[in-house]
């Protein structure tokens, strides 16, 4: 078997190492970032909750009824919707004031931006993982053209794995959390009703009984 080219072996080994360690390492950070961001959405709808006083109809002629395949919707006629308080406009006949739970108008927009960022980070993590895998295949593909090179690459990469000075990928890449996914839960700090999370861990605190 011919002697392998040392520089070529070094380059292929680095390519393999990048695919097997450096890319998964970066992918893990991105996956963790999706989890932190996901935790920011824990009970967020409550944070944005508002109470509004609105007029609701007491007469059939003040509402319009839409029927389609999804069902029947009853909506107050637009001209009957008055958001001011009763002492500002008075109470029109046929309508009555009712306090209703709504959400801040900012909420859907902020959620839209945050969700997009979360999707982007999740996509990037996934892309990094795929690219790492492809780099390994690329290194394997090149090395397989020459048995001596392939053997030398394998030995070098095994040496990398034993070298404590080299930064290595975590054993497991955290699960990417996309918008809408169920939140992980942790019950040790149950007295707190809000999200909580130290670096590199996601600890979402439940204020309800844990699932069996």
């Amino acid at each position: 078997m011919a002697e392998p080219n040392e520089a070529l072996v070094a380059e292929l080994s680095d390519l393999y190492w990048a695919g097997a360690n450096q890319f998964p390492l970066v992918a893990a950070y991105y996956a963790q970032a999706t989890r932190h961001l996901h935790n920011s959405s824990w009970r967020e709808s409550e944070a944005f909750q508002r109470t509004e006083d609105r007029l609701v109809p007491t007469r059939d002629e003040d509402v319009m009824v839409d029927e389609d395949e999804t069902g029947t919707r009853t909506t107050l006629l637009p001209e009957k919707v008055v958001w001011e308080r009763p002492w500002e406009k008075g109470k029109p006949s046929g309508l009555t004031w009712e306090s209703v739970e709504t959400r801040s108008r900012v909420y859907p927009h902020l959620k839209g931006l945050r969700d997009r960022l979360q999707e982007v980070l999740g996509d990037t993590s996934w892309n990094l993982q795929i690219t790492g895998t492809v780099l390994i295949q690329v290194a394997d593909s090149y090395a397989s053209r020459d048995e001596a090179t392939a053997e030398a690459v394998r030995e070098t990469v095994a040496g990398f794995a034993q070298d404590d000075r080299l930064v290595k990928a975590p054993e497991e890449i955290p699960t990417i959390m996309m918008p809408g996914a169920e939140h992980d839960t942790h019950v040790e700090l149950r007295e707190s009703p809000v999200p909580f999370g130290p670096d590199h861990r996601e600890v979402v605190v439940l204020d309800e009984e844990p699932k069996p």
Partner: peptide, 17 residues
């Protein structure tokens, strides 16, 4: 104050990235 936990987690996200 309800927004503080959200801000905290977004800070974690930024720091991680």
């Amino acid at each position: 104050g309800k927004y503080d936990p959200m801000l905290e987690h977004i800070e974690y996200t930024k720091a991680t990235l």
